[in-house]
Computed example of a mutant assay.
Amino acid sequence: MEFSAQLLTFWVAFSLTKLIPGSDEWGPAGDIVTGLIAIVVGATLPALIFAAPTLTVQWMVDENERVSGVHQVDLRKRNHQEFFFRVQLFGHFDSLAGWLILRNFKKRQAFVRVEFTPTDSARIKRQSVTGGASLVSNEIIALPTTTLAQDDQHSMFYGSIKTVSAGPTLDVTTSASLGSNHRWLTRTFFVNVHSDVSGIKVLE
């Protein structure tokens, strides 16, 4: 939607600059100037109006703050096969559409699904929760969108993962996606969903 708006705005801006009295007498330099004006307007104006908001899941794994990518947990020197994690949902918007979309998400009780796989070798336990987050099943955590404040925490889930006969290693993927009781809300062009951690490698 934003890209289409940029193309349309570029075309409109370029056409309008051609309507400036005397612009047809500017020659090649005038074409360059009008083209640059159209590019600047086409690149900035739609972004301020149509840019999609971002929902980010920030992680703490095994007491390590703000980890990213694939995180490794070493349980080989421990007496227990359990480690702790925290996931926090943050919202960010830079446009009018982004603000309206997040507002509608809150009204429609949209949430971000964090899905753990595989689950036959691990068990997820809840330790504490804020903002209405919930453990839907052994493999899915739901993080609701509960606030419109810029870069503020929407919800948080603090839990642990206990491994069960995983063997020498266990690779857990942690995909994040938008969820809602209203199917049309889950369209990906409405929002960018980002997760700091894409997986956890457990060494036993």
Rank of each mutant, 00 (worst) to 15 (best):
L102M: 13
D94S: 14
R86T: 15
A47H: 03
G98I: 08
G22W: 03
A122N: 06
P21G: 04
N104R: 09
R66W: 05
V57G: 01
A51L: 03
D31A: 12
H92R: 14
A47Y: 02
D120Y: 04
T119H: 01
V57I: 07
S121V: 08
I37P: 10
V87F: 06
T147Y: 04
K125P: 02
K107E: 02
T117I: 01
R123W: 05
I124W: 05
D24I: 08
V41E: 06
V67K: 04
T145V: 15
T130G: 08
L75Y: 05
F116E: 00
E82I: 15
A110M: 01
A52V: 04
T147R: 13
F83Q: 11
G30V: 09
K125Y: 11
T54G: 00
G69Y: 05
W99R: 14
V33H: 08
G98A: 07
V67R: 03
S121M: 06
R108G: 00
F50E: 01
W59F: 09
E82R: 15
I101E: 03
H80D: 14
A110C: 07
S128Q: 11
V73Q: 04
Q81P: 10
P118N: 02
I39N: 06
F50T: 03
L143Q: 12
A43N: 09
R123K: 09
A133P: 09
P46K: 04
P28H: 08
R76Y: 06
F83P: 13
W26G: 07
L135D: 11
R108D: 01
V114C: 00
P21V: 08
T145N: 11
A38E: 08
L89E: 08
L45H: 03
G132V: 14
K106I: 03
G22A: 05
L135E: 14
T146G: 14
I32Y: 13
V70Q: 06
L135N: 10
P28Q: 07
P53T: 02
M60D: 07
R78M: 05
F93W: 10
V57H: 02
D94V: 13
I49H: 00
A29W: 11
L135C: 11
N104P: 00
Q81N: 14
T145M: 10
P144G: 13
L89Y: 09
A149Q: 13
E65D: 09
V57A: 08
T119M: 02
R86W: 08
V33Y: 12
V129D: 11
E139L: 07
V136C: 07
E25R: 13
A110D: 06
E139W: 13
D120G: 02
A142D: 15
W99K: 12
G91H: 05
P28L: 13
A149Y: 12
Q72M: 06
H92E: 13
D31R: 12
I141E: 04
Q109P: 00
S137Q: 09
L89H: 12
P21C: 06
P28N: 07
T117P: 00
A133F: 13
V112M: 00
T56W: 01
D24K: 09
S128K: 13
F50W: 03
D62E: 10
P53R: 02
R113V: 01
L135K: 12
H71E: 09
L148C: 09
S128C: 10
L100I: 07
T147E: 10
F116T: 01
G131R: 14
Q150T: 11
V112E: 00
L48H: 01
V114Y: 00
H80A: 11
